[in-house]
Each structure stands twice: as C-alpha cells, then as structure tokens.
Design a protein around this nucleic acid. Structure first.
Length: 331
DNA sequence: AGCACA
C-alpha cells in the first residue's frame, strides 16, 4: 500500500485549501489580529455520528489533519461547522435543503431562512466538524440547483455556527426561520411565484448575497419547525440538482495540470481505502483521469477528501472530482 | 468545463 507512494511528493502540496474557494468572500478570513468570541462550539462533535461514516486510519493520515492543526489557532473560522447557502430559488422547501445535505459526510442539521427581504431565502447547514463542512462546501458549491433557471448554489462558511434548536434525535434535522413581514399566511406553501417584478419588496438594500447576519438571529417560532415526515422526496430534489451525478465507484478527475502523471495521482488517491486504479488521458491538451474504487462509498470519501486539492503539478488551481458517468471497465 | 476503456 505504501509502496505506490514512494515518489517523494511534498505532502503539503496535496492538502486541499481549507477554505480558499475561488468564490469565497475574502472578508471571511479575518486577520489573526482580530479576536473573535470564543468559538461557540457547544458539545464536542458527537463522535459516534462521525465514526459512523468515517472508516479509518489510513485515509486519515490524509492532510486535512496536518493542515488543520497548523492553522487552528491562527484562524478562528477553523471552528465553523456551518455553511451559509445562497442562490436558492424562492420556492425552495426546507425538505429540499435537507435532502441536499442529508447524505453528506458528517451532516448534522440544517435551517432554511426566509430573510424577509424580497423573497430571498438562504440556508444554513451544520456539520459535526469543520472539515466535513469544508468538504461539502467544495463538493456542492456552484452546482446547479434548478436546471430550469440555471440557479446555482453559492456556499461559504457561515460567520458563526448554527445552534440546534432542540432535540437531536433525528427528528430535529431541519428547521425553518421565517423573517418575512406579514405577507399572506399561505405564502410559504402556495408560492409558485415566478414573476419577479420586485413589487413585493418593502425597499431598502437589495444585496444579492445576504450574509449570515450574526448567526443567531435565528430560531424563533418553534411551531414553524417542519414535520420531517414529508421529507421523503429525495428523488425530486436530487433530480433538481442538475449537475450532480449519482454516486459511482469511478471518479472523473479534471482540472489537472498539463504535466500531471498517473503516478502522481496514484500517490494521492491511494491514501483512500478501496482505491484500485487510475487511468489518465489527455483531453484536448489537458489531462483528465478516471479513478476506480471498490465501491461508491469509498469513491465518495476520496472525492470529498481530494476535492479542490492541488498536486505538485497543478497549475490551474485544485483538481476537480466528480462521479464518473459510467464505471470503469473492470478487468 | 473537461467523461474513456470494453
């Protein structure tokens, strides 16, 4: 296993940028001089919930740890486990948000928030660890949420962690926060609102991206908690996720540097359990690769772990991984 | 944005 890793690659070059996403607002990275309130990280991440999905030992000497420890006291947002999601259609349902995140590694719970400005809706998704949050950020950011409108998700780290409203027994998996002023009471369920004439907006600033204003503004009106019993339509939600392919044991890897080699990729991929083989081929100059794993779950671990990470040969930013459209020919 | 090999 370690044998195929003997190419002396600089370990640090592999580490996925923890939060340097191209779309990320630099404001989220405060200078170390700023002292933030003690990270509101209440109960330590319930270990059982993570262990469930995390195999490991081998994969876990992957470089997240390394990177995390290196930066943890310099950047307080290493303690943020919550993602801020914008770019959602205004007829989004809480259950859709939940279905979007529920299968993600380390997912804890989420909240849908009607901001009250126009019909704008944002969401917060909280994970059991910062790393898990980042992995999902990398995976889902920019994906097309509604193929009809082309609306794509914008995901960033939230400014502060969401607090679960109460019970954590699986029935409290998602919440709704409704800041809308008056409006007809039935507006949330019957809005097939498409004509965006903007006439229903009170006035005031109309920023396209409303940020997590304080984080804890949340959680009022307990009775608005949605009944998870209607949460069974993940089909429609996942179909609505236009760009996202179904899990596959083979991964498609793009955005590699022109000098990337199979050996180099193998070095990175073989850190993940279940890795079988990688094949590269040039795509009009730029190489792409296919990496085969034992099963889709193991492919998923690698996808999330390596998403956005750079190889020594990378020259165009981090590599981009997706599930392949078809499994690698097995021989 | 780029998805092959049988």
């Amino acid at each position: 296993m370690e044998a195929n890793n003997g190419m002396g690659m600089g370990a640090q070059t592999l580490a996925p940028p923890p939060h340097h996403h191209p779309h990320q607002n630099p404001m989220l990275l405060p200078p170390p001089s700023i002292t933030y309130p003690p990270p509101p990280q209440p109960p330590p991440p319930p270990p059982h919930a993570i262990e469930q999905h995390q195999p490991y030992d081998p994969s876990y000497n992957n470089l997240y740890h390394y990177h995390q420890q290196e930066q943890i006291d310099e950047f307080p947002n290493q303690n943020i486990n919550t993602l801020f999601v914008s770019g959602l259609p205004d007829d989004i349902k809480p259950r859709e948000i939940h279905n979007l995140f529920r299968r993600r590694h380390g997912f804890d719970f989420c909240q849908l928030k009607y901001t009250g400005r126009g019909n704008q809706v944002v969401a917060f998704a909280t994970f059991f660890s910062h790393q898990a949050a980042i992995a999902t950020l990398n995976t889902l950011n920019g994906t097309t949420f509604d193929p009809k409108t082309g609306a794509s998700l914008h995901i960033e780290l939230a400014r502060s962690n969401s607090r679960p409203k109460r019970l954590r027994d699986g029935t409290g998996a998602y919440y709704v926060i409704d800041k809308r002023t008056k409006v007809s009471d039935d507006a949330h369920e019957t809005s097939s609102n498409d004509g965006d004439d903007g006439s229903d907006e009170p006035s005031g600033t109309n920023k396209p991206e409303s940020h997590n204003e304080g984080g804890f503004d949340a959680v009022e009106s307990a009775d608005k908690t949605v009944d998870p019993s209607n949460a069974g339509d993940k089909d429609s939600t996942e179909k609505a996720l236009g760009g996202v392919l179904p899990p596959c044991s083979t991964l498609f890897i793009a955005n590699l540097g022109p000098n990337c080699t199979e050996e180099e990729l193998k070095g990175a991929l073989s850190r993940y359990p279940g890795f079988h083989v990688v094949k590269m081929r040039a795509n009009r100059g730029m190489p792409v690769a296919f990496a085969d794993f034992e099963d889709a779950d193991q492919a998923t671990e690698a996808l999330q772990g390596l998403q956005g990470s750079e190889l020594p040969s990378s020259d165009r930013g981090g590599m981009h991984l997706e599930y392949a459209r078809s499994k690698m020919r097995k021989t």
